[in-house]
Design a protein around this nucleic acid. Sequence first.
DNA 1: CCCTAATGAGTTGCGCACGACTAAATAGCG
DNA 2: CGCTATTTAGTCGTGCGCAACTCATTAGGG
Lengths: 151, 151
Amino acid sequence: MSTPGAEPSQEGSLLLDDQLCFALYAASRAVTARYRPLLDELGLTYPQYLVMLVLWEQDQISVRDLGNALQLESSTLSPLLKRLEANGLLRRERRAEDERSVALRLTDAGARLRERADTVPLAIGDAMGLSPEQDATAKQLLRLLTTNVTR
Amino acid sequence: MSTPGAEPSQEGSLLLDDQLCFALYAASRAVTARYRPLLDELGLTYPQYLVMLVLWEQDQISVRDLGNALQLESSTLSPLLKRLEANGLLRRERRAEDERSVALRLTDAGARLRERADTVPLAIGDAMGLSPEQDATAKQLLRLLTTNVTR
DNA sequence: CCCTAATGAGTTGCGCACGACTAAATAGCG
DNA sequence: CGCTATTTAGTCGTGCGCAACTCATTAGGG
């Protein structure tokens, strides 16, 4: 009859390749894999790189605010931050005005790493190979999706 | 001066919120989190659900072909498949014609689970809240991105 | 002022995800 | 036919990611 595989994708389908969720899952892992060799040079994992991005933007942030920025739990961040501290990129210090809160402060090494990192976004943008319009559309749709899905 | 936060996003920026990679990372985790309560009812994790999708589509697939479909390494799949086998959803049997290869065969329980799972895609599609056009555009862009990024 | 509720960071347990490696089996070349 | 290279699945170690929980500290109502 018709060409096999030419049927339209359906949202309610149980077929793997019809599902946006799988495209999302596969793309996320593929992008992370693309970052890996670049971040290896900096001695960072991908989540550690995200943490450093936030700290380069705003030093002395609390663990709480970092978690809000990255949408990660303290149970994920605490060990990760301990590793960054052990690698000499940041220090953790209890806030005097609120002993529950921990402020993250970049060390000199942590601040200097920014210069070596500033070629990374362009290299990745290049590898992604999307036009500025496609990039903007993708970001917009992914943010809408994230908003909807988190109620 | 100008309104803070009104500057255009840039691809080469080190700002977290400018980066497509973070939108992707956050969206992927948010979608997985949305699946969690639904999949808990089925006794599956999200990657286990993806494996079951493939098996419902094509029973008796090899670990190798499953890995190609999901883009996952055997080092990820082997323990995951062992858990699915322990939960009684599939059996692993060495192929007689090639003793290196392992065929995955659904048990009756594994096949029956499909019926309970067929409401999941619609529930998720609903939660995602994208129009059919947005859904199609997102899938298309994510696939393009995945292709580009994996060279 | 007390005392209970909340908040912030951390620990533990489990399941991915992947690189590096191993062992067994097969392919395929000389 | 023999032997080496490749293929397939698996183990091990490390680092997330998150639920469930703990502990210390602070907020805020009676």
